[in-house]
Design a protein around this nucleic acid. Structure first.
Lengths: 217, 217
DNA sequence: ATAAAGTATTAGGTTTGCCTAAATATTAAT
DNA sequence: ATTAATATTTAGGCAAACCTAATACTTTAT
């Protein structure tokens, strides 16, 4: 149906649409996918030909309904596999991403459904990200970032935006994981870096870090 | 490390080496892989450059030790996934092949080892084919074909050479499966087709069919 | 309003892996 | 031992996905 590369673009566009307003720019896709802008333009045209995205030259792309549904299927597969790797195969949560990135492209509707059933239809993956169901519906999920809190606020960690093993190992080192309670001690006004209390330890987090930690409060 | 296509060639060469003597010809690879002979020649050159095969123009290819080891790893992954699909995800044995063909290319040494452990280190896949261990050793396995039996002989089905769902569904229809006892009733001399008794039913099998059924006796 | 700076697109090139058609080598048959 | 038949390789093309360099469009700043 679609190539792996096309699927990677759909997924990247989907994730960027959750962050950015309006059309997704060539440059943000280029950055996200580690691909040169010229290559992105080329691929975007192919996706537009296949009616997976709406594309306005110089004004970025948006997923069509078909494109969005397919992106959700890839995300569903990715997160189910991550759950499988951690819960059944003893992977650590910070070493599953790259393998899941490969497994998400396996084409077999039966496999997805049976895997989901085998795992007990989990709602969240090991990073706290919600797993879309077979119809593409996402369980409700608090989309608030740690960086949005004020000094003195409390939050409970519910997931991460950056699931790279580098980032996940970093937060683990700071004793921040799923369901960790975090208190904001101080925010530096000049760079928005935050001193927080997590697991009785005070740590300093850059704005980049706090932007990538989802919380509920 | 290697591309999916390269891995498919290695696997095909490995399987053909179990059947044919000497170098594997361009045409048998071409047939096995559903690829034109010219494309095969091209790929073979690439594999020879990478020292995965020894190649003599016009006289076919043989796997090098590196090539053989890699082929065995792919086969190991293929069969472990087939086992997983049938034993854990309720797949039928005749619908796993295509999915396993995709899964065998997933690159993650940890995944293979953990999956093997999770499954209890099985020795045979659902078609009766032996699963190589982490070092590439195969459990002992009777490599005799049903077509080698004489009239009146008995054999016990231990596996199949053709694992396509078409063939597996065909043998299932004839009530032949793993461990089925088969008695040779008659062999037509002009086309080697065989009348056999399996599960108290007499059925006629072409030479093509009996060549693809492995037995022990 | 226009020039400079920043983005995006086009043009032209590469590699992988496939194809067809033409040329060449091997094998089989007289 | 030639010739005919068969198998293999070479030559030249194509599509996917990437790249760099050059060009074109947008936005920002004066």
């Amino acid at each position: 149906m679609f190539t792996q590369s096309e699927e990677n673009y759909l997924k990247a566009i989907f994730h960027l649409q959750e962050e950015e307003e309006g059309g997704i720019s060539t440059s943000s896709l280029s950055e996200k996918l580690n691909t040169k802008a010229a290559s992105v333009t080329e691929m975007i045209k192919r996706l537009a030909d296949k009616e997976l995205v709406d594309y306005q030259k110089y004004y970025g792309v948006k997923l069509t309904d078909t494109g969005r549904n397919h992106a959700l299927l890839i995300i569903r597969k990715h997160r189910l596999w991550e759950y499988f790797l951690v819960e059944r195969l003893n992977f650590n949560w910070d070493e599953v991403h790259d393998v899941a990135e490969q497994l998400e492209h396996i084409k077999s509707p039966k496999l997805v459904e049976e895997l989901d059933a085998f795992l007990g239809r989990p709602e969240y993956d090991p990073h706290g990200d919600p797993i879309p169901d077979a119809k593409g519906n996402l369980p409700e999920y608090p989309k608030k970032k740690l960086s949005q809190l004020k000094t003195g606020d409390y939050g409970i960690c519910k997931g991460f935006n950056d699931n790279s093993s580098a980032f996940l190992q970093f937060v683990a080192k700071q004793k921040i994981g799923l369901d960790t309670t975090i208190k904001v001690i101080n925010i530096e006004s000049f760079d928005q870096s935050m001193t927080v209390l997590a697991d009785k330890k005070e740590v300093l987090l850059s704005k980049t870090a706090t932007d990538n930690i989802y919380i509920e409060n």
